[in-house]
Write a protein that binds this DNA or RNA. Structure first.
Length: 302
DNA sequence: CTCGATCCCTGGACGC
DNA sequence: TGCGTCCAGGGATCGA
């Protein structure tokens, strides 16, 4: 599951592997996850990948001007969100295509930058100028860059549950379910606690925990739970350091109490019921089961 | 403003 | 072996 550390790992790998390469042509498979597929086919060929950076959970591939003469006043980027199962890596053109390969960018070094995504929860978009800026402005602070003041303000001015706030990309960009749960455990905060009710002490602890965990996860090249592979096709190692995520029933690393799982903000949330005291009036709900009246056939669109 | 519900999608786990 | 069912989850969207 690509979150901030995984996307950072991919960005660094791509920076090393494809920065400076020119895109010669574009081949699309299924394109329902692309904002404007025609724009990709029209705009990418002839542009050089100047560099690759992470922005929240997005990869930003900075592109050069299409024509040499072009004055290139506008910043031009290819945004790539890996969703749940996306991978982006350069492969030799001779290599057979993996299943679910949906985008192929032919490069000028005999390789193809291939986007593979079985579930197509990802997103791809060619954006430039003001449209690009407007898109990037939708997102909150980078958790590794935000100072305590900004971090505390963004959390404490909201009445939503802290888990929901951590997952909200307009509050902080880049945090997903794994690192939210891991940092809440480290900071001893219940996922259902309300942001506005956190003490300054708790917010400080949370920021420390979050930053420390994200940094260590980046060093270990992210977590590979199921599908995640970096730009070189290698899995990460941080999953071995998970203290609560995916560990329901196992003993808490601090107090041995069995880790529990509840649904908060519509997501599985793993926590230690002893270390992470629940807020007042919080009652755990049964797992969300879409037990839509049996017999009724769910209708599918298109 | 915040919430839950629903949808998107496929593969893997599990039960029979 | 094979089928059906449930589930995972980031994000958009909608109604309460």
């Amino acid at each position: 599951m690509p979150e901030l550390p995984e996307v950072e790992t991919v960005a660094r790998g791509l920076q090393r592997e494809v920065a400076g390469r020119k895109i010669l042509s574009v081949t699309l498979g299924k394109s329902d996850f692309i904002d404007d597929p025609d724009a990709l086919e029209r705009e990418l060929p002839g542009r050089t990948i100047l560099g690759v950076k992470r922005y929240g959970k997005f990869l930003l591939l900075r592109l050069g001007a299409k024509e040499k003469s072009e004055k290139d006043a506008e910043e031009t980027e290819l945004l790539v969100h890996l969703g749940m199962t996306g991978t982006l890596m350069p492969r030799p053109v001779s290599e057979p295509k993996a299943k679910h390969t949906h985008v192929m960018l032919l490069l000028d070094d005999g390789r193809e930058l291939r986007y593979v995504d079985p579930r197509r929860f990802g997103r791809m978009a060619f954006l430039a100028g003001e449209v690009l800026c407007a898109e990037l402005r939708r997102f909150g602070a980078d958790p590794l860059e935000a100072g305590l003041e900004e971090f505390a303000q963004r959390i404490r001015e909201r009445r939503a549950r802290i888990k929901a706030l951590l997952l909200d990309q307009s509050v902080l960009r880049g945090v997903g379910n794994i690192y939210a749960d891991e940092s809440l455990w480290k900071a001893k905060i219940h996922p259902a606690a309300l942001g506005a009710k956190l003490s300054l002490r708790q917010v400080i602890e949370l920021q420390r925990a979050l930053q420390g965990i994200l940094r260590k996860a980046i060093v270990l090249r992210g977590s590979s739970i199921s599908d995640f592979l970096d730009a070189e096709g290698l899995p990460g190692d941080y999953q071995r350091h998970h203290r609560v995520y995916g560990r329901e029933g196992e003993g808490c690393a601090r107090c041995k109490t069995p880790i529990r799982r509840v649904i908060v903000a519509g997501r599985s949330s793993y926590f230690c019921p002893k270390c992470q005291a629940p807020p007042r009036r919080w009652r755990k709900k049964p797992r969300t089961k879409s037990k839509a009246s049996s017999g009724v056939i769910k209708k599918r669109r298109n």
